[in-house]
Computed example of a mutant assay.
Amino acid sequence: MENHIELDETSDIISSNKVEGTSVYDSEGNNLGSIYNFMVNKRSGQVEYAALRFGGFLGIGSDYYPIPWDMLTYDTDKGGYQVDISKDLLENAPRYDENSEPVFDQSYGRDLYGYYGVPYSF
């Protein structure tokens, strides 16, 4: 027998399947893309970064841009995440396509966080 848990949308806790596909906006309210998935540290259980799907047309030709999770702030008015990243900074950020996912190790994390000027503490 399956156990289903209903989560209150106003709660601080959200199911991973509700995060995936959520829109991400820049500080001016422009839609940058959507959360494709997020990466969880297996040992600590903390989310390290979210992969933002950006570019392409109707999801075709999109690339994935990992963003440190701590840079994202949930905006209840928008029903999405807000991040203080310009489109120009994002266009030059580390990214990968669906056929070339990087090795998500500590070295990659340090480089990624360094690009955004965020301390890496995992």
Rank of each mutant, 00 (worst) to 15 (best):
S34T: 06
D88Y: 06
L7Q: 10
I14F: 10
V40F: 01
T76F: 15
H4V: 14
K42Q: 10
I60F: 15
S15V: 13
Y65E: 00
Q46S: 13
Y108L: 03
E28N: 10
Y116S: 02
Y36T: 03
V40C: 02
V19F: 06
D111L: 07
G80D: 04
Y115V: 01
M39H: 14
F38K: 01
K18H: 12
Y113A: 03
T76N: 15
T73V: 10
G61D: 11
Y108W: 01
G59Q: 12
L112D: 01
T10A: 13
L58F: 12
D111R: 13
Y81D: 03
T76K: 15
K87Y: 14
S86Q: 06
G45P: 04
Q106F: 07
N92I: 05
D111E: 15
I85E: 07
A51Y: 03
F104D: 03
S16L: 10
L112H: 03
S44V: 04
R43C: 06
D63Q: 09
A93G: 05
D75G: 05
L112V: 02
V19S: 05
F54N: 14
G59F: 11
S27A: 15
R95H: 13
F54A: 12
P94F: 02
E98D: 10
H4Y: 14
I85T: 07
A93M: 04
V118L: 07
I60T: 09
G109I: 01
D8T: 07
Y81W: 06
E9N: 09
H4N: 12
G114M: 08
S100M: 12
K87N: 15
D88Q: 11
F38H: 03
V24K: 03
G114Q: 11
A51E: 03
D105L: 00
S15E: 14
Y108P: 01
L89I: 09
N41R: 04
K87Q: 15
K42S: 09
F57C: 07
D97V: 06
G79W: 09
G80S: 05
N3L: 10
I67R: 00
Q106L: 12
E20C: 15
D75S: 08
Y81G: 01
S27P: 09
L112W: 02
Q46L: 15
D75L: 06
L7C: 08
D63W: 10
L58M: 10
Y49T: 04
M39T: 09
L72M: 10
D8F: 08
I85V: 14
G114A: 13
Y36M: 04
E28L: 08
Y116L: 03
Y113Q: 02
S107D: 15
Y108M: 00
D70V: 08
Y25E: 02
G29S: 07
G56N: 12
S107Q: 11
F54P: 02
M1H: 15
G114W: 08
S121G: 05
Y108V: 00
M39P: 02
